[in-house]
């Protein structure tokens, strides 16, 4: 692999572009492939097969050839509402798992660069923040403030936009009250039941890192259920 190619790969990863690295195992030549862009002439003859492998998002040698394809897909977006103590541990787990993290918190003293270096922080109320962060059905929401005026609008946005994972921190009582509020706002049981509350799998721990672990474990398990 050429140094220049490595540089190109890292740039594309940083820009969250979907691409493949294709390698000819016979002569060691490699390049990147992006759908819709022209393909390196040395790989032209296998173009159709490379595109089909790219679409399958599968890594491997293309059958009947010596071409190895490795595809980089866009990371899953995880939005954390509440730049609280648990979030500090959560971002570390989420980084190792290659999730793309954004934190929303209108309270500037929580959502500071000093507490969350290298993380996208949106220092706004959720409804304004969602104008800045593009979301879809492959987005996850982790609501951690247990303050209705911050969490609720975010939960409502996530339910309306059918996020694949929605979790909210708080005791059973807090969650019951939350569900009642959502019902009043016009959400039905089926929608409300999509929220994991209290959030996380049962580990038994109560420290911030333990709760963060239980949340991230639940999130990963939901990724593979969809």
């Amino acid at each position: 692999m050429k140094k220049q190619l490595l540089k190109e790969i890292i740039e594309k990863k940083e820009k969250k572009i979907e691409f493949s690295i294709i390698t000819n195992l016979e002569n060691g030549e490699s390049c990147v492939f992006e759908k819709g862009k022209s393909i390196n002439k040395n790989f032209e003859e296998h173009k159709e097969k490379i595109i089909s492998q790219f679409d399958k998002k599968k890594n491997g040698i293309i059958e009947g050839t010596n071409i190895f394809v490795e595809t980089y897909i866009r990371p899953i977006k995880v939005i954390i509402v509440g730049a609280v103590h648990i979030a500090q541990y959560l971002v570390n787990f989420a980084k190792s798992l290659n999730f793309e993290i954004s934190i929303i918190d209108p309270r500037g003293y929580f959502a500071s660069k000093q507490r969350f270096p290298d993380i996208k922080i949106v220092n706004k109320w959720p409804m304004e923040a969602f104008n800045e962060i593009k979301t879809d059905q492959n987005t996850a929401l982790i609501a951690l403030t247990h303050d209705p005026k911050i969490d609720d609008p975010a939960l409502q946005h996530a339910l309306k936009n059918k996020f694949f994972y929605i979790g909210a921190l708080g005791s059973k009582k807090t969650h019951t009250n939350r569900c009642a509020r959502l019902e009043e706002s016009g959400f039905n049981d089926e929608q409300i039941n999509k929220i994991f509350g209290p959030i996380g799998i049962k580990l038994g721990g109560r420290s911030a890192p333990e709760i963060a672990l239980s949340i991230i474990a639940q999130l990963v398990s939901e990724v593979y259920k969809k």
Partner: peptide, 18 residues
């Protein structure tokens, strides 16, 4: 759904080369 597990080995390779 697929996670884009990336163990960031190539990023580390870049640092080693540097």
């Amino acid at each position: 759904m697929k996670n884009s597990f990336d163990e960031k080995i190539l990023d580390e390779a870049k640092d080693w080369l540097a």
